[in-house]
Structures are given as C-alpha cells and as structure tokens.
Design a protein around this nucleic acid. Sequence first.
RNA 1: GAAGGCGUAGCUCAGUCGGUAGAGCAACGGACUUUUAAUCCGUAGGUCCUGGGUUCAAGUCCCAGCGCCUUCACCA
Length: 519
Amino acid sequence: MSASSAPDRFETARLEKLNKIVDLGVDPYGQRFDDHLPIAEARRRAPGEPGIIGDEVRVAGRILRWPKTGKLQFVHIQDATGRIQLMMSKADLSDEQWTLISALDLGDVVGVDGKLRRTNTGEITVFVERLTILCKSLAQPPEKFHGAKDIELLLRHREVDLIYNEGVLERLLLRSRIVDSVRQTLRSKAFVEVETPVLHAIAGGAAARPFHTHHNALDIPLFLRIALELHLKRLMVGGVERVYELGRVFRNEGIDATHNPEFTMLEAYQAYGNYESMMDLTEAVISDAVRTVLTARAMAAGDAVADAPPADDGRLTLPWGEGTIDFTPPWPRRKYADLFQEHVGCDISDAAAVQTAAASHGIEWANVHPDVVVSEVFEACCEQHLTGPVFVIDYPAAICPLTKRKTGDPRFAERFELYVEGMELANAYTELNDPRLQEELFRTQLAGLPDEESMAKMDHDFISALKVGMPPAGGLGIGIDRLVMLLTNTRTIRDVIFFPLLRPERVAPRGGGGAAESP
RNA sequence: GAAGGCGUAGCUCAGUCGGUAGAGCAACGGACUUUUAAUCCGUAGGUCCUGGGUUCAAGUCCCAGCGCCUUCACCA
C-alpha cells in the first residue's frame, strides 16, 4: 500500500515471476497490441451453444479471477467494456507459453488470440491459442469475494477501486457522458464555450472563501476563482452573446457528502434573455442529460438481455434511493414568498413573525439584514420539502447583489434556484446591467457577513465593463457534480469525482509523534 | 471548527473479565484437463495507527496525537 521502495513479500514473489518472464526472452511490460476487440464486442460474437466453434478473436484485459486448476486453467479478464473467460489448456499450448502462464498473477494485463466458444456450462470463453503478457503487476489485489471496502483505501488508491469494485468506473464514465450531453445541448443552441482565468486578483461572483496563492514574478497575491461569473459577463459586453464555461471552481470551505473544495461548475449567459429564458435552458440541458443516462442504461440492459428495446413511457424517470425522480419537463415554478408562507406560516415582510420563526430554529437575527434572516429561515424550513424538480423564483433582493430587480417591485430580484431532492442544483437570474446600481450594491456590504465571504466585493474591471454596456441577459449556474449525483443515484460527491481531496498521509513519522513542541 | 464512531496479516474481519495474536481469501510448495468465492494436503505471513502512562501483565484500561467515516457549523 505504501509508496515505499522496499518490496513486501507479495511484491518479491511477483518480481521472481517477472524475472522468469525475462528469462524466457519476453518483455514483462509488453508492447503495442493492435486490433483487439472490446470484450463486449467479443461477447456479442460468441456462438449460442456449447460445441459450436466460433470466430477467432483477439482481446486484452486485466486478470481478475483465477481458480488454479492444474493443466486446464480458467482465467477471467476485464476491460473497460466487460469481462470474459479465457480457457488455457496445457495440451494446446507450447511449453514456453505454459511457462509464461505459470508466471502470471491476478492483476496482470494480458492479450490473447483464440476461438470463441462456450464451455459445458454455457459460459462465453476464448479458447486461448496464444497468450501475450502486456504488463506484469507487482501489487497484490484485494480479497476476491468481499473486494476492497475500506473507504480511505479506495479514495487514496482510486485505481484499485476502479478495477476491482463493480460500478465505480461505469459511474464515472457516465459522468463524462453527462458532461458531453451538457455541451451538446448548449452547442445546439449556439452557445460558445470559452475559458477564462482561474487565477483572480479579486475572487468575486459568489459568496465563498477563496484559496490564496501567489505569483512570484509579479510578486502579487492571487486567488483561485470561486465563480466564473464576472469574466463571462465581460465577454457578453464584448459581443459574445451566448457564452458558457464548464470548469473547475475552488472554495475554501468545509468538506462533506455534498461539498468538495474543487468542483465543476457550468455557467451560461444569454444576451437579450432573462431568468425565464434560463429556466427554459435549464430544463433543456438537464432533461437532455437525463435522456443520455436513460439511453446508457437501456444499452447496458440491452447488452444483458439481448436487444430488448427499452420500455419507454415517455417519462424521464430516474431512480433515487428507494424511490424515483421524475425529470419530465415542464417543472413547476413556485414563488419564494409563497413557499415561505406555506412552510413557515408567515409573510416574508412580517419582520416580527420572521424573527419569531428564526428564533425557534436557533437562527441569529439581531443586527442581521432582514432578507438574510428570511433566507436562513427558508433554508431551515423549506428546502427539505423541495423534492422537485421545482424552480423557486423571485428571491428577496438584498441577497442577490448581481441580479436585476423585478420590474415594478424592487423588493424582489429576478432570480430562481432549481431544487431537486432538497438539493440546490441550479441558480440563475436576470443579470444586473446597471453599472451605478451594481457599484452601489458592491459598496453596501451585506449585513453580518465578514468581508472575505461577502459577495459584494468591488471588482473595478467588472464595473467599468458594465459602463461600456451589457445587453439585458439571463445567466445560469449548474453544479455539475450534484447533477451527476442526482442522475446516477449517488449519495456522496466523492463518488462522482475521480480523486476527491483527502488530507495527505503522513510519511515517515520520524519518532516523536505527538510530543513535538512548538516554538 | 465541534461532537460521536472506527483504525488488528496484502484484503475482508473475529479477538470474552487485562493473562501465549486468530479465521477466510490472497501468497508460497504439492495434487488436479470444464472452473464459477473450485477442491484437497502442507508452509509462511503481525510496528494490533503513533507516542506516552497505569499494571506482575495492555490489541483490550487511561492521556495525547494522526487518519478516515457520520452528524453539525460554513458553503454549492
């Protein structure tokens, strides 16, 4: 498990076999291996019954299971598309090949040529005529039946998790397909993908604590971005009318089942639109992604039960825990104030009643802006009821410093959040394009928020861009990791990220563990 | 950042009241030409997370530290 160079007894045993392979004049780390079939494709070509000799095929993969049974060996290998059994008979192979086989272990990568057949028990099998070692593995695989279970081990050595635990690779590959789908939907609507700076002099566009870094040559402090918003709006000023970025943002906050310090955000901006245009866009992006997942699931099922067409009732329904989520659009649009009235039992403008509700949930309200109190009461009382998908629309203006006020009612901002299963999945608004109001909102610090966490940070480059003139526009943000969680029935964000952040393992404790004195 | 739980062989896990460190799988040697967690015989494998303490004796009790998990706080 450790990165130590001292081989353990398992590695030593494998090194001995590696040397045995070298003694045969064979490269234990292999060479280019052309024209092999994906295992799933080889399985499709297999004959239907035992006794029929099928196609000659070439496949490659990692050895996963190997009950060693004398002069007739059955080995199971796996590639990205599936698993297949190999049968190796001493009588059919040269002495050199049999020696090579005796030097193989679980975890080695091999390629084989042979004919597809079924065994007496009906299992699809390649009857090996020639075996090629492509990589000798020096690591001991986990227990064959229970697999690796220790969460820390799986996260620190994700490659082991990917190889030996079923469904892990599939889920993460499905993430890639979902991201493809999001890009395709946006492209089909003429949105242009761009890349804006990750290193910011001012980390703006959201309320979050940033990561600090430093540029040596310029000798200036820099921050990793916490949002994509401000640069993308400047591009809209510059004439990129439909623009999006799908990229990593970084927030220096706590870590839990739904938060990783770096996560993937989609932000899309549409000139001449508003928050209602963004609701339509959100429905399109997400329902297309749901269709992608349904298609992938149908294909996986079709592979197992041979070309049965997927049952299609026209609904976009995906499993979630014991139940399901129905993503079939259109999704309901509920006013923030109405939901507040419904679940809290008072009007958001009734300050006394809101304070009472806040106090009963242990929420601080003295010297806090009334809209911030409303927002915290909403989160405490309403969010868990929003199983959704549901658009919550028209937020209290003071908690939306980058949002245009509602025409005729400046108490509210033209903002929506999309909730699914109590999780905030998307956040969007009609963008504020009045530079003087924007500057004023930046100057008016939000009550109760320390400066570093405030959304109201003055970005002069952004204000001067707004002075050039940004057309009216809608803007949308979707947390891609959470979208993937909801679409793949996954409860923790670390299972939709290949390498979630962990505290580094301490190497070489050098004696005095906790006894280290401080200066 | 706070509270609770966990940490024993490569892996999955037992370990009673404080009294010689255990099993299965994997590994190594042997038998075996249709296995499906193959089977059978044999061998080897331990910093019980780390460091202190109590005790005749600590995997077990106490203190401190490290890591992970869960819940909470911050946040999306």
